[in-house]
Design a protein around this nucleic acid. Structure first.
Length: 297
DNA sequence: ACCTATAAATGGAATACGGT
DNA sequence: ACCGTATTCCATTTATAGGT
């Protein structure tokens, strides 16, 4: 039986964040939706290449039993889809994604990638010829409100944490200074600091002294959040170079731009040639484009 | 079924406020 | 005067509906 909590704002949050609960609910929902039986295998399976299978399921379709390796994910984002596609590529027909809720758009994307899935509200995509099950559009009930990954998610938070990680002393500065450094609104700082403290990344030593701890761990979180929330937003466009080796000579400092890691690595090691050249800069970019002779791709 | 238009929900900026 | 907190409001994102 699922458990529910109510937060300060009176919102109902469900606690189906544990992988086991998701697994069981998804199985139940699938059976209810399709009248097919799923057997949850008791055994654990560890693949040779250190990968662990979360669970083994057997689905009985017209007398034929198919075994599935289940990968349970609490949340599925565009990034996890990419990881899954890679992870499943060895034997896509056996792999099954199990998650809380798959939106219609996501369902389509997963089908296109042939990633089979079931979720806790009865959406599913199972492609086991001659059987094809594709259910989407089942909505999560209001009670299944997404449990906000309590924390400093969001653009502002990412920027604040970046500033804090860069400058050790900054956490003792007034919120106004932090806001200035991180280029965010004053109000946002308070929220981030509160969340950081709640999660044990920020310790109040005394009235005026704070310390940022577990920095490595925080950086990990930051990397994920950055890749997911901030980087896509900062992405300007994709271009094709007219001269493949343009990056060897070009000086871009005067355009207020910096090379990405690939070029930087080459300049340091002279070893790997960059496949994709990333440039960090600000709009407007016309002059840069003209100078490097880039074409929109 | 898919794409576009409209509506609802957030997150965060700006502003105002009260305390030290 | 300086600083953190609360409130308001706007923009951007996400879900829903409607039309082709």
């Amino acid at each position: 039986m699922p458990m529910f909590i109510i937060n300060e704002q009176g919102r109902i949050l469900n606690m189906v964040t544990r992988e086991n609960d998701i697994l069981n609910q998804a199985i139940e929902a699938f059976q209810k939706e399709t009248n097919l039986h799923i057997e949850l295998g008791p055994e654990q399976l560890v693949l040779d290449n250190r990968r662990r299978i979360d669970a083994i399921l057997r689905i009985n379709l017209h007398g034929k039993t198919t075994e599935y390796w289940a990968e349970v994910k609490t949340t599925v984002t565009n990034i996890t889809v990419g990881q899954l596609a890679h992870q499943f590529e060895d034997n896509p027909e056996k792999c099954l994604l199990i998650t809380r809720y798959v939106q219609p758009q996501l369902a389509k994307a997963l089908r296109d990638l042939h990633i089979q899935f079931i979720d806790t509200v009865g959406n599913a995509y199972i492609d086991d010829p001659p059987t094809l099950i594709y259910i989407r559009g089942n909505k999560p009930q209001p009670i299944f409100v997404f449990m906000p990954e309590e924390g400093m998610l969001g653009r502002a938070g990412i920027q604040v944490i970046f500033a804090l990680l860069c400058k050790r002393e900054l956490c003792n500065a007034p919120y106004r200074d932090i806001a200035e450094q991180a280029q965010v609104a004053l109000g946002a700082v308070a929220k981030v600091m509160k969340d950081l403290a709640a999660q044990g990344f920020l310790i109040e030593l005394n009235d005026k002294q704070r310390r940022l701890v577990r920095r490595k761990e925080l950086l990990d979180k930051w990397l994920n959040a950055y890749a997911e929330k901030l980087r896509p937003k900062k992405f300007i466009d994709r271009y094709k170079a007219t001269k493949p080796d343009f990056w060897q000579q070009a000086e871009i400092d005067r355009f207020d731009a910096q090379w990405g890691g690939e070029v930087a690595a080459y300049r340091l090691t002279r070893y790997l040639k960059p496949e994709i050249v990333t440039i960090y800069t600000r709009k407007p970019i016309h002059n840069l484009i003209l100078n490097l002779k880039l074409r929109q791709d």
